[in-house]
């Protein structure tokens, strides 16, 4: 992105206007939207260049697990519960740009390599919660399915209405990004995304799709529930 003197003056002017007219919780001048979008693109580049698979999260020493105080939310009218009678046994589909699409039952998932980690959950609102998550690292599923080198993005889909979030591939393959089926040593309950969900400390909570149904490897970003509603698509930590 080229940042000309004109852009600079326009940014300064807009910011000044934002400051004078825009207090009282306004969103600021509409004309600033383009500049904010440019800044988000720059930030995404910076964040991706900082990103390392060796950077790991760990819950603070001495911090108690949040347990039932761990806030939970969903976008359907009621807690989404997989209805086996109506929809058949739950399975996780791994597909898109892969050599071997997978269809895994919960038992299949539990037989695969398991990782248990005590990490933070970072909510975009500013709170954190501590839990011990168990599940299959997504990179294990990626290796099993054989991902096309042209795949750059992964979409995590759910049965919580149309909730989904797509991620950059390198965050998906981070060792702490799990298809989690247990929290604090117990199988997930519907409040926390049963039967399985994405959980990773490298992305903000809203990127961590609960009630997971499908992992789809794709070429281009496909937005997401909150990303389409104005939150940053990258949402990385």
């Amino acid at each position: 992105m080229k940042f000309s003197r004109r852009d600079f003056l326009s940014a300064a002017g807009l910011s000044a206007a934002a400051l004078v007219l825009g207090a009282c919780d306004s969103e600021g001048p509409k004309r600033a939207a383009g500049l904010l979008a440019d800044a988000e693109r720059v930030n995404r580049k910076v964040e991706r260049s900082l990103f390392r698979h060796t950077s790991m999260d760990h819950a603070p020493r001495g911090a108690a697990a949040s347990g039932d105080s761990f806030p939970s939310y969903f976008v359907s009218d009621e807690v989404p519960v997989w209805d086996t009678a109506a929809m058949g046994a739950w399975r996780l589909e791994v597909g898109g740009m892969v050599r071997t699409p997978l269809s895994l039952s919960l038992d299949d998932l539990m037989r695969l390599e398991r990782r248990t980690q005590r990490v933070n959950h970072y909510c975009v609102e500013g709170w954190t919660a501590v839990a011990e998550w168990s599940g299959v690292p997504v990179h294990v599923l990626a290796e099993l399915a054989g991902v096309d080198p042209a795949a750059k993005v992964v979409d995590f889909e759910s049965f919580d209405d149309a909730y989904h979030e797509s991620w950059d591939l390198e965050s998906v393959l981070h060792p702490q990004t799990l298809v989690a089926y247990a929290k604090d040593g117990k199988m997930l309950t519907p409040a926390y995304g049963a039967p399985a969900r994405i959980h990773s400390p490298v992305k903000l909570g809203y990127k961590n799709t609960k009630y997971l149904t499908r992992i789809r490897f794709i070429a281009e970003p496909n937005g997401g529930y909150w990303s389409d509603r104005g939150y940053e698509w990258y949402g990385g930590l």
Binding site: D25, S26, A39, E40, E232
Partner: peptide, 17 residues
């Protein structure tokens, strides 16, 4: 009255720019 950005995501965009 002393906040700016309108909502969480709006304020984050301003903050990170």
């Amino acid at each position: 009255i002393v906040t700016f950005g309108g909502w969480l995501a709006g304020a984050r965009h301003w903050h990170f720019a």
